[in-house]
Design a protein around this nucleic acid. Sequence first.
DNA 1: TTGAAAGCGCTAACAC
DNA 2: GTGTTAGCGCTTTCAA
Lengths: 337, 337
Amino acid sequence: MVKITDVARHAGVSPSTVSYALSGKRPISEETRQRIEASILALGYRPHAGARALASSRSNVLALVVPFRSGMHVPVVMQFAVSVVTAARRHDHDVLLLTQEEGEEGLRRVADTALVDALIVMDVQMRDARLPLLRALDRPSVLIGFPAEPAGLTCIDLDFEAAGAACVRHLAELGHRCVALVGSPPEVYLRGTGFAQRVARGFTAAADERGLTSTIHPCGATQAEARDIARRLLGEHPELTGLVVHNEPLVQPLIEAFQEIGLRVPEDLSLVAICPDEQAEQAPVPVTSVAVPSAEIGTEAVELLMHKLDRRSVPEATLLPPRLTRRATTVPRGSTR
Amino acid sequence: MVKITDVARHAGVSPSTVSYALSGKRPISEETRQRIEASILALGYRPHAGARALASSRSNVLALVVPFRSGMHVPVVMQFAVSVVTAARRHDHDVLLLTQEEGEEGLRRVADTALVDALIVMDVQMRDARLPLLRALDRPSVLIGFPAEPAGLTCIDLDFEAAGAACVRHLAELGHRCVALVGSPPEVYLRGTGFAQRVARGFTAAADERGLTSTIHPCGATQAEARDIARRLLGEHPELTGLVVHNEPLVQPLIEAFQEIGLRVPEDLSLVAICPDEQAEQAPVPVTSVAVPSAEIGTEAVELLMHKLDRRSVPEATLLPPRLTRRATTVPRGSTR
DNA sequence: TTGAAAGCGCTAACAC
DNA sequence: GTGTTAGCGCTTTCAA
């Protein structure tokens, strides 16, 4: 193994000069830097990560805790993870993957052993058991999602409340007067995952503000449940013409379920989804949607963490504003009847 | 920070004794071990990962390289990643997440800096640019998938050839005489991802062996393409009664597309998919399938790697035998006509 | 069964 | 602008 002393000897300088040339933590004359660079290349030098971590008390590794439970949309999690890795690499950091399953002990372990410098935690619940630990840890963290008590933490997410409202306003502007929200599976509401409630709140508030009739329906992600909901909505609200869907895998089945009972989208029913743009674009009929910007959230989470590692101050709450893209599933009420 | 010397002093032993008590690399008297354990608990000692890595030249971290490209089924990748993390933790290892995008340089970096002890590489191509590097690296690796030249490497995957054959034999045993394979998107074949060809080979061989008429159709994963394929199959092979689908997101759209043109599954058309069991079970009509056992592959990949790290020998090739589960989409030919 | 002590390879004072 | 050197916290000979 070639080490820093080898490079130093080869370049005719001291080890510390090589170290400083690499870190840029003190000025090096142009000529020296060139010689060092050449030596590094010639010898194929790679600094030993462990030695570095030990001497500098920085591992240059971030922990990413991913969920893997029912009701979570897997492609969103995956895209998020990839964007975190990509963003971390731009800052010369690597990413250690932890599963939710490891729980608090996992977080404590990677923090206390100095395996990682900082943590990103996905799928934060309203009353998350990990919050006290995260607050107490000597390492910075960023949470994806908002708990009930975010004070003292750094949180980021799509502004789901504004997203729910944006969907309703879009439908209202198209003249729809009776709208429904088909939401996440009941278990997601029950375990207090904030975003489900937030969408519901924004949805209801905007509907009230515009004087629309509105109802909310949690729903599982199977075709059978899609059919049930469609039937029930048709029966209970025959005047329904606007639908907001916040349940990624259900969008397509729902459209088909309505079709089966004689309601076409968008002719009879306008539909706005809250889902990744990619999904909305690739649907057979492109879906009007508010984007769930996983990649942006991941990238921004890393930026926040880097700021915190540099002891720069960051906002406690970052809410990304919703972006609604009109596609083919929303039309003015009664436009083709 | 509490360190090993603190524990040693507290327990009234030397640092090396604490170290050995922790690693088990030499016998410690029961009484001493108890005292040390108590001290560790009392002080809340956690060994510093970097210091450990430096002194032992073992980081206890594995690299996992995940793909993120078109044609890869995201839930499979995710489940695989989770199973790797879970298995690695059982062996006291952590997992560093790398994206395909980082390429060879990424592999070299984490290996040469001693950030990781070993590597798992997913989505290996027939002629993968990373193979020479992996062979040359001083760190063990396990590949998911089989390249054209697997010599000198350790590879593991589902036996896709046997899987393709198993599907055909199942259909043949039900009396079907004309079968088709709807496969991965064309780009997957083109870039030489082995499993697509392997399924095709096993499919054709088994069909020939049983004297069945057979055709193969790569297909993208959109509903539109599903419709095209369904129409084309019906037109070109009106006697078709058996279908093998090796394209996860296409299974459902395809069933619906056939339904639209008047072919019901399974009454008119029996269908076997190669897909995760979870997907097959949760479909509206449970799908007869050969399982893609992501979790098993991930777990076994970690086991292989642990053996290699322990300098135990491992087989170069591990092919998991296909497991076919009959569900509701396959019936004897002509059974309800 | 245990201890003493020499590193592991790097960083960051401190000195010039 | 550069060099000297004392650690960083742990593992592992070597010695008893």
